[in-house]
Computed example of a mutant assay.
Amino acid sequence: MTLDFLSALMIGIAGAGHCIAMCGGISSMLTTTGDSSNQLRKALSYNLGRIASYTFFGAVAGFTGSLAIKSIGIQVLWLKVIAAIFIILLGLYIARVWFVLTHIETAGKYLWRYIQPFAKHLLPIKNAKQALLLGVIWGWLPCGLVYSTLTWALAAGSASQGAMIMLAFGIGTLPALLVLSTSVQSVTNLISSLLFKKISGFLLIAYGVYSLFIALNQIF
C-alpha cells in the first residue's frame, strides 16, 4: 500500500499545471490583501480545507470499493485495472492530447452548481477561518485530476486506506499552489507551461501503462 500512497503523491505533483489552472485564481486572491503573515495563514488554511475534502472523498471511495469487493465479489486487481486506465486517460488529458476526462468533469458540474453559491458567501476572504471553509468547498470543484486519483482510492479496499491515498494526493498538489500563493512568477510560469504539462502527462501515461501491465499480469 505504501506504493499506492507514493503513486498518489506523484500524481498530485505531476498535475501541478492543472492544479494552477483549476485553483490558481483562488490561491492568488488569498494573497492580494493583508500582511504577508496573514496571507500565508490564509493560503495554508485554504489548502488544508481543500485536502480535507479530498481525504473525505478518498474515505468514501475506499469504503465503496470495499463493499464492492465483499458484497459483489469484484477482485481488487480489476479495480486496479480501472485505476490504471484512468491514470493513462489523465496523462493524455494533462498532456493536451485527448480530453475525454472533460466529459467526467462535466458530469460533476451538475453537483458543483449547487455547491458553488456557498463559496460566494465567503468572499472576499478576510481571515484564515473563511479560507479554510472556502478550501473545503473548493475541494468539490469538478476536476479530472481528482476523479482519476479517486479510482486508486476505490481500489484501496478500505475507507482508511482510501482516505490516506487521497491525503497523499492532496499533499502532492500543495507545492504548486503554495508557490503560486507566494508569487514566485518564474516557477509559476514553468509549471503552467505546455512543455511541463507534456512531460508530466507522458510520465503519467508511462506509469499508467506500467500499472496496467502489472495488474493484468497478476490476473492472467
Rank of each mutant, 00 (worst) to 15 (best):
I51N: 01
G201T: 02
L6D: 08
Y93A: 03
Y210C: 08
A8Q: 05
N47S: 10
A159Y: 01
A156S: 15
Q75I: 12
G91C: 07
K80V: 03
A206K: 07
Y46E: 04
T106M: 15
P117D: 01
S7V: 12
Y114L: 10
S53A: 13
G170L: 07
V184F: 12
Y46K: 06
G73S: 10
K70Q: 13
G65Y: 01
V97G: 11
S186Y: 08
S45V: 07
V187N: 01
I219K: 15
R96N: 15
I69C: 06
V97T: 14
R41E: 11
K80D: 06
I74E: 05
I13D: 02
M1K: 03
S71W: 13
S27W: 02
L167G: 00
Y147L: 13
V81A: 07
S160L: 13
V179C: 10
K126T: 11
Y147G: 02
L92Q: 10
V209H: 08
L195Q: 10
R50N: 06
Y54L: 11
A95G: 08
I13E: 00
I199W: 02
L92S: 06
G139N: 03
A168W: 01
A156I: 05
L77Q: 13
F57M: 10
Y46N: 04
N189I: 13
V179G: 02
G201L: 02
Q75S: 15
S7R: 09
T151G: 05
I214P: 00
L204G: 04
V97M: 12
L48Q: 06
S27F: 03
K198C: 05
P124D: 11
L134H: 04
G62M: 04
V81D: 00
L44I: 15
G208F: 11
V97E: 12
M166C: 06
A131I: 09
M166S: 05
I165Y: 01
C143Y: 04
A68W: 04
F202C: 11
F99R: 09
Q39V: 09
F5E: 07
H103E: 10
R50H: 15
L6I: 15
I115F: 14
V136K: 03
G108P: 00
L194D: 13
I87V: 14
S71P: 09
L216G: 12
A16R: 04
V60C: 05
I85E: 03
Q130S: 13
S193F: 07
Q218V: 11
I74F: 03
I72T: 14
A153F: 02
S148P: 06
I20V: 12
L122A: 07
S181E: 02
P117A: 06
D4A: 15
R50V: 09
L92H: 04
G144D: 05
Y207G: 08
F169W: 09
K129A: 12
Y93L: 04
F86Q: 01
K120T: 13
W98T: 10
G17L: 03
G62W: 01
M166N: 02
L141H: 06
A95T: 01
I88F: 13
G144E: 04
G108S: 05
G49F: 09
S36Y: 08
I115M: 12
